[in-house]
Structure formats: structure tokens, C-alpha cells
Simulated assay, not measured.
Amino acid sequence: MPRPKSEFDDLYPCDFYTPTELLESGQMYTVYEIARLLQDLEADAELEPGEEEILLDWAIPWLLSHGDDLVIAEPPTDADPGFYGLREDGDLPGES
């Protein structure tokens, strides 16, 4: 259910990192690692139970809004998440 803005003590700009600010060239990351990086945590930071789901609420829209700047790789197994990285020249077939 939506809530009135007046119910919140503070409002902040919705500024997110760009892919080049967040991700290292030549590296691939899971959505879970990206979620941590978006919160200025280490990609392998330990989280309290339930925190990961909250962080994913930030990461999934970020991935969708920056899809043109990213590439995705199939997960190693069906039980693993996919991997995302910066889209660079020559990453995709037919690109040079």
C-alpha cells in the first residue's frame, strides 16, 4: 500500500552507480554480489539472514535499467545464479 511522503522523516535522491563505476572491467558478478556492491559492501560480505533479499530489491531494478551496458553469462549449473559484467567491445559474437 502506498504511503504519503509526509510519513517519512527524510527523502533522498535516488542516485545509483553507473556500471563502470561499480564493476571491474573483465570481471563477472552474480546479482548477489552486485547487490552488495551497490551498498558499498565487499562482493563477498557476510549478511544477516534476510538482508540479501532486501539488497536484491535494489539490485534487480539496477540491472534492468543498465541492461544495455552489461553482458550476461549462463550459470555453471541450473542451481546457480547468472553472471553479469560490463559490456565491452568484442564481448558478443559479431562485435569487434
Rank of each mutant, 00 (worst) to 15 (best):
L41N: 07
I60A: 01
R36L: 03
L64Y: 04
L41F: 05
D78H: 05
S65P: 03
S25A: 12
L92G: 11
E88L: 15
Y32C: 02
E74Y: 12
L56D: 00
P61H: 09
Y29L: 10
P49A: 10
E46V: 00
I34A: 01
P75Y: 00
C14P: 13
E52T: 00
D40K: 04
E42C: 06
L63I: 15
L70P: 15
P93D: 14
P75V: 03
D44A: 10
W62K: 11
V71T: 13
L86C: 08
P19D: 08
Y29Q: 07
P19Y: 04
D80W: 07
F8M: 03
E46G: 04
A35L: 11
T77F: 10
S25D: 12
G82E: 06
F83R: 08
I54M: 01
Q39L: 11
D80S: 12
V31D: 04
E7S: 10
E51A: 06
E88T: 15
C14S: 13
E48K: 07
Y17P: 07
D9G: 11
P49R: 14
R3W: 07
T30P: 00
P76M: 05
R36Y: 00
L56P: 05
T30E: 08
L38R: 02
E74R: 13
P19S: 11
P81N: 03
T77G: 03
D15W: 12
G82Y: 07
L86N: 11
D9T: 02
L22P: 01
Y32H: 05
P81Q: 02
F8L: 06
E52A: 07
D80H: 07
L55A: 01
P93F: 14
I72A: 14
I60W: 09
E52G: 09
Y84G: 03
S25M: 09
C14Y: 07
Y17H: 12
G26L: 11
T18N: 01
E33V: 05
H66V: 06
D57S: 07
A45T: 00
F16S: 06
P49Y: 05
P49I: 15
E48C: 05
L92I: 15
S6M: 00
E33A: 14
L63G: 00
G26D: 09
V31L: 09
G67Q: 14
P75C: 02
Y12H: 13
P81C: 07
W62Q: 02
F83Q: 08
D44T: 12
S96H: 14
Y29I: 06
P19H: 04
E95A: 13
Q27V: 10
I72F: 09
I34M: 08
H66A: 01
S25E: 15
L11S: 01
L37C: 02
P13F: 10
E33N: 05
S65R: 11
I72R: 15
E88H: 07
L41I: 04
L63E: 01
P76R: 05
D15V: 14
R87I: 13
W58E: 04
D80M: 05
M1C: 11
D10V: 04
D69E: 13
E74Q: 12
I60P: 02
R36C: 05
G67I: 09
G50P: 03
C14V: 10
S6E: 05
P75S: 11
I34L: 10
D89S: 15
F16Y: 12
T20F: 14
S96A: 14
L11M: 06
T18G: 04
Y29A: 01
H66I: 00
D91M: 15
Q39D: 07
L11Y: 03
V31I: 02
